[in-house]
Write a protein that binds this DNA or RNA. Structure first.
Length: 131
RNA sequence: CCAGAUGGUCGGAUGGCCGCUGGUUCGCUUUGCCUUCGGGCGGGCGGACGAGAGGAAAGUCCGGGCUCCACGGAAACACGGUGCCGGGUAACGCCCGGCGAAGGUGACUUCAGGGACAGUGCCACAGAAAGCAAACCGCCUGCCUUUUGCAGGUAAGGGUGAAAGGGUGCGGUAAGAGCGCACCGCUGCUCUGGUAACAGGGCAGGCACGGUAAACCCCACCGGGAGCAAGACCAAAUAGGGAUGGCAUUGGGCCCGUUUCCGGGCUGCCAUCCGGGUCGGUCGCGCGAGGCGGCUGGCAACAGUCGUCCUAGAGGAAUGGUCAUCCGAAGGGGCCUUCGGGCCCUGGGACAGAACCCGGCUUACAGACCAUCUGGCUAU
């Protein structure tokens, strides 16, 4: 496979709506959604995980929203590159705290959210409940 | 030095690590397309080089380019907009220069600034009276026996009001009044200066003609509509359509000739192609009323000319993330002081993200700097 450090992006509205129907986990700095990809006929190998980013008007004006998405993108590049599951699509939703939280905290939020969403019944969830 | 006015410029800096978008170029690769079999185009991966948000990118309020639709030309009506004069501009409701009015000691600022003899309407409350003249109090004259009162004159005084039929002064008068005169204002005619708005003057008239057009309205000028989700192209799927060929045309259904017989038309299935145009993709989409600098003309807006530069192009929307160092006004605290201030700590980085592109306007904005000018203080 390629040595690229980037990952495919979700760009279509239909993809975002599909992932929104999947599993969902909230952390102080972000909300993570995940759903399995639709495989083409005859496709055996799962394709690379894809990621999308969203910020609603609650986060702030246009400047605040794009900045929140940029921080999420930088965090996703560090975490999801290695730990995302192939064959799944992820959506990261910005919150108001996305802008104020320090970057290490944001990375920690994303890592915990990824663990929780991948093992919904693991002891992790009970030991560290969200909110 | 302090306070202020106007115009303009900028709007964090440097570096490390990791990324994104599109461009040029090199290498590897290719179940795609074309091929004269050399290759070319396209796709994928990687490397190198240089580029990548704003003064408002914002609000979407005006003016244009561009695109599609409508329309024979022109005009009129309706509707909407603009409204002192001259100039600038592709155009404007914008800009520049002037005029008038208002404010400021001043630099300067502000302005819905055409028409009230075309017509209609309105002018609340108060007040005697609000557009046509009018007498509430008062003043004066006469009558009457005095008070009460009656008749008449009077717009100078009081009172009301946003506004009361010119203002001030002198004369005049019973008291008054443009009744007379002077000055100011007004109206008409006229002269001078100015392209003009307008300004200044002369003569005449005793003064008549109130305000309101961000009330209807009148006049002059301007305007066809919708917008890049415009629009053009490629094109899975699906509904319906067409052409050709094959099968069926035994039969069924419907329609027509009144019915039967007989005849005609429509209706079926499959394949290929055309056409269609959804998801998706490509273009539109970056050389332009272009930026910067000089010279010339102009008070200026701006124009002309010469040189030079090419400078974002996304699409759940790139133009960054992170770390370090530096810089940063007011305010607060401390120390020093030659009372001008200096040093240290703290504090503290605004408004805001291109979405087809230009010209404006409006609104938001931490802070820094420059130029010109005004008023004041001090010194020479």
């Amino acid at each position: 496979m390629s040595l690229s450090r980037s990952f495919p992006r979700l760009r279509k509205r239909a993809d975002f709506l599909r992932v929104a129907r999947g599993r969902k986990v909230a952390r102080p700095g972000l909300v993570l959604q995940m759903a399995p990809q639709e495989r083409a006929d005859g496709q055996l190998e799962p394709s690379k995980a894809r990621v999308g980013f969203t910020a609603s008007r609650k986060v702030g004006n246009a400047v605040a929203r794009t900045r929140a998405k940029r921080r999420l993108r930088a965090a996703a590049q560090e975490i999801l590159m290695t730990k995302a599951r192939p064959g799944y699509d992820y959506v990261l939703i910005a919150r108001q705290a996305t802008l104020t939280r320090s970057f290490p905290e944001l990375l920690d939020d994303l890592e915990k959210a990824l663990q929780m969403i991948s093992n919904p019944r693991s002891p992790n969830r009970r030991r560290e409940p969200t909110q």
